[in-house]
Amino acid sequence: MASQGTKRSYEQMETDGERQNATEIRASVGKMIGGIGRFYIQMCTELKLSDYEGRLIQNSLTIERMVLSAFDERRNKYLEEHPSAGKDPKKTGGPIYRRVNGKWMRELILYDKEEIRRIWRQANNGDDATAGLTHMMIWHSNLNDATYQRTRALVRTGMDPRMCSLMQGSTLPRRSGAAGAAVKGVGTMVMELVRMIKRGINDRNFWRGENGRKTRIAYERMCNILKGKFQTAAQKAMMDQVRESRNPGNAEFEDLTFLARSALILRGSVAHKSCLPACVYGPAVASGYDFEREGYSLVGIDPFRLLQNSQVYSLIRPNENPAHKSQLVWMACHSAAFEDLRVLSFIKGTKVLPRGKLSTRGVQIASNENMETMESSTLELRSRYWAIRTRSGGNTNQQRASAGQISIQPTFSVQRNLPFDRTTIMAAFNGNTEGRTSDMRTEIIRMMESARPEDVSFQGRGVFELSDEKAASPIVPSFDMSNEGSYFFGDNAEEYDN
């Protein structure tokens, strides 16, 4: 783990906690998980779902989305002020799938948001429990990260689609708070800032007046979040320049895209947490497990152990491969979309394939898809080993990566060399080191050039047997250095459309 220093740990961010010791953190995270579980059980009762239907990941996603929508204050306010045809701002819903006479049927349900809020609060001892809501947002974000390569979004903001390893959390809503900021990748933060800068260039009043003052505060806050992700002084200094700019424009845009590229080699610290679907927490609570009393951590053995003992089902389209669908969801559960496939294969105990080789589309089923041909199958979400999630980018030494994705962002704290394609990355730096950030740029390029592919990161860190909950005997895996390590390699994943 990167030293926490003055930073709060993510469990504290996750639970809005002030400084807590490890036991208190485990208890408050457990409380959050228990609340999600209780809410899910109650919703299944309301909807009269069978046990099997309640364990269907598509039903879980609909129920999670309903509660997130019920608590989305800004959108609710907007919907009330701008009524649109056929949208009731006070209601929320989605597809629920039921097994009827041996076939899967889709039923569109509609609930009062007020009623959903009441059920959620009741499951969370009367609190709004925003930490639990954020947790579900991060699960949705991790699922998107594993399912889609955001080529269009990258290109629109002047970045290269091969930089997708920097895009963790790119679909997280803005209201996801400190826990959300911690899991956002460098590219995601750059993209958010670039969008602001572009608006400022096109709209003279963007930075002016009372609204402009708020915009400015948001801009500086985002700059500080991004600065905190960088691990070298030169990158941090460049972020200070971007933040202090009187009138952010093209120079800042250039600096930010430069920094994003540099992060492929001088990786930023991005938190990883295993956020599971509500249909995993519900049955665990129903079986009598007391998360608050037992304590829970999002970055240790607990999620692995929970998945070892969970039964989750998914709808499967006619030509999809259930094992591939399982891999997709497994990666999402562990926030591992940008991790090295060699490491993932070792931990999972079966070969993890790149996205383009998977015969599976996303987990969600569109409303126009034919239910007649839908089957369902068990998702295999178990693992051979477990490993500690990392909050750091690993040290800054790398190795060759593949054509589709030119770097990785480690999820697990496991000893290995970190793949990246130096030639491709360095070719993108057209040696432009003039301007006010020239000395920093020169320094950053120097550090990137001296990074050695064969150097090892996370020295001495290994994986653990599932029986080793105290992480007492690390097993340090050895990897084939020459092997392909990137998930979005030469990829044809669908595009994420909101």
Rank of each mutant, 00 (worst) to 15 (best):
G93V: 09
I388Y: 11
N124Q: 13
S482R: 11
N21I: 12
D421N: 12
V329A: 07
L276R: 02
S69P: 07
G158M: 05
I425N: 09
H324Y: 10
E24M: 09
G209V: 07
S407I: 08
E244Y: 01
V186L: 14
D16S: 01
T15M: 15
A85M: 03
G282D: 00
G177W: 07
A366F: 07
Y97S: 02
A260W: 02
Q149N: 08
L61A: 05
S262G: 12
R75I: 11
Y296H: 15
M331D: 01
A251L: 09
S392E: 05
T390R: 02
T134P: 00
G249R: 11
D439G: 10
K351S: 06
G288I: 05
L379E: 00
G485S: 03
T157I: 08
G404M: 05
R26V: 06
D497H: 10
A472L: 06
Q308D: 00
M136A: 01
V312D: 00
T23K: 00
Q459R: 08
I63W: 06
A403F: 06
F291L: 08
G462V: 09
F71P: 01
I138Q: 09
V280R: 00
S345K: 04
I225M: 12
Y281P: 02
L166R: 01
G228M: 04
T390L: 02
T6D: 00
D480C: 05
F291E: 07
F458I: 12
M43T: 09
Q308I: 13
P322T: 10
H135D: 06
T6E: 01
H272Q: 13
S473W: 01
P419T: 14
F206A: 10
I217H: 02
D497Y: 15
N368S: 13
T134S: 15
I119G: 00
G490S: 00
F489V: 05
K31F: 11
M447K: 13
N125E: 12
M13W: 12
R221F: 09
G200V: 12
V194W: 01
G34R: 10
N250A: 10
A27F: 12
F429E: 02
M371H: 01
M371I: 15
T373S: 04
L110W: 10
E192R: 01
E81Y: 15
S413A: 13
K348P: 00
S335F: 07
P89E: 02
T215V: 10
P303Y: 08
Y40S: 04
I265F: 01
E454Y: 09
D240V: 15
Q415Y: 04
C164E: 01
P322H: 06
Q4P: 15
E244A: 06
N319I: 01
A181V: 04
R208F: 07
T171Q: 05
I406G: 01
G356R: 08
R156K: 09
E372K: 13
Q122S: 05
T350W: 07
M331S: 06
G54F: 08
N101T: 14
R199V: 12
G17A: 14
T157H: 03
S345T: 15
R436Y: 02
M66R: 06
T45I: 12
C279T: 08
L56P: 04
L315E: 00
L256K: 07
A263N: 11
N144S: 07
F304D: 03
L166D: 02
T62R: 08
Y148A: 01
Q12G: 03
A387K: 02
G435E: 09
V285S: 14
D255T: 03
G268Q: 15
D421H: 14
S165W: 03
S245C: 07
L193E: 02
S335C: 14
F206V: 02
A2I: 00
S84L: 07
Y289G: 07
N247H: 01
M189R: 04
E210N: 11
T188Y: 05
S473E: 12
L306P: 02
P283R: 04
R156V: 01
S310M: 14
E53V: 12
R416L: 00
Q4V: 04
R117K: 05
P95E: 04
S310C: 15
F346I: 13
R361F: 07
D88L: 04
